[in-house]
Amino acid sequence: MDRFVFLTFDGLSRGAVYAAFALALVLIWRATRIVNFAQGAMAVATAYVGYSVSAATGSYWLGFAVAVLGGLLLGAVTERVVMRLVDHSSHLNGVVVALGLVLVIQGVLGMIYGNEFRPAEAPFSREAFTVGGIALLSRFDLFVFGAVFLVVALLVVLFTRTSVGLRMRASAFAPDVSRLLGVNVGGMLTLGWALAAAVGSLAGMLVLPTELGLHPNAMDIVFVSSFTAAVVGGLDSAVGAVAGGLIVGLLLSYVSGYLGATVAPIAVLLLLVVVLLGRPGGLFSRSAARAV
């Protein structure tokens, strides 16, 4: 029982990060119908920069801010300089370019920083509080929950309560109509990529201290888990991405806790396959929402 409680909290904490990362994937999917396979590599790149700044200045938080803002910038540049030039007649083109971007980013990171793991320190203690002898949550876990909650809340407010959010949603659903109504669709696309990449970078900063540390490939497994979370949630649904993230986090935690860490990646892939076969629209899909 103690173990179950511990694994549950651990799973929710990991799941919160997957949720944020899945949310970033969903943001881009909704706007462009592209799965941004480069999101993990982009997040690692900004984390490297962030930790370099932390090391140089001695301030973790300055580096943290640089990583997230760097994500914003990298996302915008990726859309403007790379994705905008892609021929959008087939969605496969965007995917292929994103995969190419992964190789480029990981190669460049390897050249600059080397291919060894570097420590990624956490801003708070990772020692779990114990309540009645059961280890529950660390300060860092609380920070993760708080940060993810804040980001989700801000995105909800942005998309449902502001005119920029309305423009972004309209651009994603009906680009031509939006342009006829004076919406700068290209600008909304850039903003969407920027926000998504910033959320991805934030997720990276939250997950790297709990893994082996900084490495060009450090986010690969996180990407697979988060992609599964997004698919479980239906790829189109922000609520689904958050729920999917928590589900995948719990699954990973229980499987590694009870069956061993080596089984965990297989469990994630199994979940992906089951969902794709059983409910390809995701667990949260509303059927026929887009009737014309």
Binding site: L166, R167, R169, A170, G182
Partner: peptide
């Protein structure tokens, strides 16, 4: 179609 009536109308004046 994904936006509400009110959102569609507001879009016209943004």
């Amino acid at each position: 179609t994904e936006l509400t009536v009110d959102e569609n109308l507001r879009l016209g004046g943004l």
